[in-house]
Write a protein that binds this DNA or RNA. Structure first.
Length: 577
RNA sequence: GGUGGGGUAGCUCAGCUGGUUAGAGCGCAGGACUCAUAAUCCUGAGGUCGUGAGUUCAAGUCUCACUCUCACUACCA
């Protein structure tokens, strides 16, 4: 069995994430991790909150809180939301953790020793009123191109022209509105990505199993020519820039008081640091996951992320890893997603457009969201979320196809066979048909999970459920019951076994409902894995429950979403606007 | 502006290196069944594959132009 390291892009600390963030990294990573565990692989699934950067400082300021306090609070909120969505992290860390401070400072030191870091002077807008340097987009003013009065310093929202903040007419701070801004010189460390171009290109070209989206974005940047990138910022909250060569020392590098590492430098390093924290907490060994000289050479490392993160994961972070010349594990497979859109437009907090993770659970159980978002995963394209589509997939796939199947067969067994798995009957055409279906579809399902094709995995899962309904139509135990109870028995028995199998197969995507089904059917915990083996074993799946075994009917698994619900939600969340 | 992704049935999407009548789910129409959450099963109608040229015996699939849309564009993350 393989060892698989799974990470999902770190959710930023600045607020609860919306459904798009969930669908594009955390949820598919979770589902992949769950599926691989069921297949018997050793899986480590790591995630964390990404806590540094200007937006975190400003959000804390808005909330009237100390940054560290704010991050602590938001970390708990995100951990809670993740738990409620049943994200099966082995560890959910924080990029502000001491382990990440140490490791980030370590990488910076090693990179500098390898001549990949140098200090340079740049010019940056400083706001006297705010007492801080402002990132380009936090400077606003009148667009010199179109005259739009609230153009951001990086790009004008009105005409789309790319800008430099010093080009703005009447610039002001977007934080305070103060016009008391000036351009100051500031020194920063730069990571010399340019010298790594060819090695990165070779690595990207050799990569296998990346979606087109991921490799094309990486190659695009390489084709344009990698520029050196500054990896420090003028901020107080973050990882201090310690003195060169003084590993472990807390002494600040000269000229770097009030500066910290850039959030994008330290965030991916947190994948490793979080693993260290996980190991410290559990007594496990982190090096066998990350150090190729300590056993990580046979790890398959899979990263999940939205398309906006691809450049950082294919170029910046690999530069850090490769540039260190230390035996760190590099990503093997990278799964990138497009966006989930809100009725075709962008999710927007300020305009109250869209559903966020905490609100979502007030509307519907996590399984509903998990199913809908994966059945419509933004894999090839941006995917539009609408409550109407949500209603349609949930009612059809979960309530009608799966929920009703489990309900009809368990109720029937309870009514006609005393709630016990009945013996008797002769297997015929219907049984041969369902076996051939399972022999074709179960391997296909597993292959889709292995390929990280989530839409297809959901579609195949659904197709297997639908085949169960079709089997019952063919076997028609209620018809046989009138003349031949044994023939009714086999249809019921196979039907019950299919219900159990459906629960087993549903576990990655809808773990709560799967548990309910498996509990009702009395399937023991150690009989829920995906150890299906070859075709001969698949045949045995429809006769796995012991004869005479007691089965119950679960409560309604999925209540339907009514038109009234959709109307209410649309009104509340601005759907269809 | 530059670069990249995408534009396939009413809707949401599959279609690998070009090859018989372009697929799925939902929705819609008709039929079957009655065990079940008015659920299920079967059948059917629905597409000039964004537009226009080109290459080829053959193009949704390759080339060029155009158009719409989304993303990125290096100090938001």
């Amino acid at each position: 069995m393989a060892r698989i390291l799974v990470t999902s892009a770190l959710p930023y600390i600045n607020g609860v994430k919306h459904l798009g963030n969930l669908a594009g990294s955390m949820l598919p990573a979770d589902i992949y991790a769950r599926a691989m565990r069921l297949l018997g692989h050793e899986v480590l699934y790591i995630c964390a909150t990404d806590e540094h950067g200007t937006p975190a400082e400003l959000a804390a300021q808005d909330a009237g809180m100390d940054v560290a306090e704010y991050c602590e609070k938001m970390h708990q909120a995100q951990a809670g939301a993740g738990a409620q969505f049943k994200l099966s992290y082995d560890y959910f860390g924080r990029s502000s953790a001491p382990s990440n401070h140490a490791l980030t400072q370590h990488f910076a030191r090693v990179l500098e020793e390898n001549d990949l870091i140098e200090e340079r002077i740049s010019k940056q807008v400083y706001s006297n009123a705010d007492g801080r340097f402002l990132p380009d987009r936090y400077v606003e003013g009148t667009c010199p191109n179109c005259g739009f009065e609230a153009a951001r310093g990086d790009q004008c929202d009105s005409c789309g022209k790319l800008l430099d903040p010093i080009d703005l007419i009447n610039p002001y701070s977007a934080v305070s509105g103060s016009t008391d801004v000036e351009v100051r010189e500031t020194n920063h460390l730069y990571l010399k990505q340019s010298v790594m171009s060819e090695r990165l290109r070779d690595w990207v070209n050799a990569a296998k199993g990346w979606p087109h989206l991921a490799s094309s974005i990486a190659l695009k940047w390489l084709d344009e020519g990698l520029r050196d990138r500054s990896i420090t910022r003028d901020l107080s909250w973050g990882i201090p820039v310690t003195q060169n060569g003084a590993d472990g020392s807390k002494k600040i590098r000269s000229g770097f008081d009030g500066k910290v590492f850039y959030v994008w430098f330290d965030a991916p390093i947190e994948y490793i640091a979080a693993t260290q924290d996980w190991a410290a907490q559990t007594g496990a060994d982190w090096e066998r996951w990350w150090r190729t000289d300590k056993g990580a050479d046979d790890v398959s490392y899979v990263q999940f992320m939205g398309k906006d993160n691809v450049a950082f994961h294919t170029l910046s972070f690999p530069t850090t890893i490769i540039g260190s010349a230390e035996p760190w594990k590099l990503v093997d497979q990278l799964k990138a997603f497009n966006w989930v859109t809100w009725y075709g437009g962008k999710f927007s907090t300020s305009q109250k457009r869209g559903v966020f993770m905490d609100q979502a659970l007030n509307i519907a159980p996590s399984d509903y969201w998990r199913w809908h978002l994966m059945a419509n995963a933004p894999e090839g394209n941006d995917a539009s979320f609408t409550f109407e589509e949500f209603q349609a997939t949930i009612n059809s796939d979960l309530a009608n196809v799966l929920g009703n199947f489990v309900n009809r067969i368990t109720k029937y067994a309870a009514g006609k066979f005393d709630g016990k798995v009945p013996d008797g009957g002769v297997a015929g055409e219907a049984e041969a048909w369902i076996i051939s279906e399972l022999e074709a579809r179960i391997p296909a399902l597993i292959a889709y999970y292995e390929a990280k094709e989530f839409r297809k995995a959901a579609a195949e899962t659904r197709a297997i459920w639908a085949a169960g309904n079709e089997y019952l139509t063919k076997a028609a135990p209620w018809t046989h019951y009138k003349t031949d109870i044994d023939q009714a028995a086999i249809g019921t028995r196979i039907g019950l076994n299919l219900a159990a199998l459906f629960g087993v197969l549903a576990q990655p995507i809808i773990p709560d409902a799967a548990d309910k089904i498996l509990a009702a059917l009395g399937v023991p915990q150690d009989n829920r894995s995906w150890d299906f083996g070859d075709k001969e074993q698949i045949k045995t799946l429809i006769e796995a429950l012991p004869i005479g075994h007691a089965v119950g009917a679960p409560d309604v698994l999925f209540s339907k979403i009514e038109d009234d619900d959709v109307a209410q939600w649309s009104a509340k969340f601005g759907g269809g606007a």
